[in-house]
């Protein structure tokens, strides 16, 4: 078994298993903690917890008007790399083929040129996020190893993917194997570090939405 076989086979399979198990484990650990019963009387005319939760998930997609200026970099750059990652992951033909082999599902791919450009923009955006973290006194102070590891394991598949399609630095097979291995590392890390916010964002926002809506805020 060469490196590519290892990456395509056991490595990615184990990584996906860890991802699924890890996400379920961590999510259920929170869900099963249960929610304290709220015996206060909700303000009249306010939405119920479900609607309030959905509303809050949508509302926080854009900055609060009061903080639009303060949030301008985080909002713009955050959207760029999140959307960029989504486009690269779900729009690139080889990725769609991988999903098709796994699940039978497929959808039209975007032109490779678009993917390369979006990949480069995503890498630049992630770099900007790191520079901001390192240069902002607040972000530098509150950051922990998790923030830097999470950045690294997110950036690595983007860079190795770009290197693989560009045949930069090594044989294509080797570059592809490294790319797949970097994805495996990302999948394994996701449930354990701050990348789990990809799941928690919905729970956290919805909880706050329901909490504030009850009060009529």
């Amino acid at each position: 078994m060469d490196l590519l076989d290892f990456a395509r086979g056991p490595a990615i399979n184990v990584a996906m298993a860890v991802l699924v198990f890890g996400v379920l484990w961590r999510l259920l650990a929170i869900v099963f903690l249960g929610k304290p019963v709220d015996r206060t009387v909700p303000r009249l005319g306010t939405p119920g917890p479900f609607m309030a939760g959905v509303r809050e998930i949508a509302r926080r997609m854009v900055p609060h008007p009061t903080f639009a200026f303060a949030e301008r970099f985080a909002f713009f750059n955050g959207w760029v790399f999140h959307v960029g990652l989504a486009i690269v992951v779900f729009g690139f033909r080889p990725h769609i083929l991988f999903v098709k082999n796994l699940t039978g599902l497929s959808w039209p791919a975007l032109p490779s040129g678009v993917i390369y450009a979006v990949g480069a923009i995503t890498a630049l955006s992630l770099t900007a996020a790191l520079i901001k973290r390192l240069t902002s006194p607040v972000q530098r102070f509150i950051s922990t190893a998790d923030d830097y590891v999470s950045w690294l394991v997110t950036m690595a598949p983007v860079v190795t993917g770009l290197a693989a399609v560009g045949h930069v630095g090594a044989r294509y097979e080797t570059l592809l194997a490294i790319h797949i291995l970097s994805v495996a590392v990302l999948l394994i890390w996701l449930p354990f570090g701050k990348l789990f916010h990809a799941v928690l964002v919905f729970l956290s926002r919805a909880t706050t939405g329901a909490f504030l809506a009850r009060r009529g805020v």
């Binding site: 929170i30 929610k35 304290p36 972000q139």
Partner: peptide
Amino acid sequence: AIGRPLASWAEACVKCGLCAEACHFY
């Protein structure tokens, strides 16, 4: 004290630091 709401909040921070912009003490 930690039920689902507090656990979701305690684990969700992405350390963006935007909250400093809103805090009068900062």
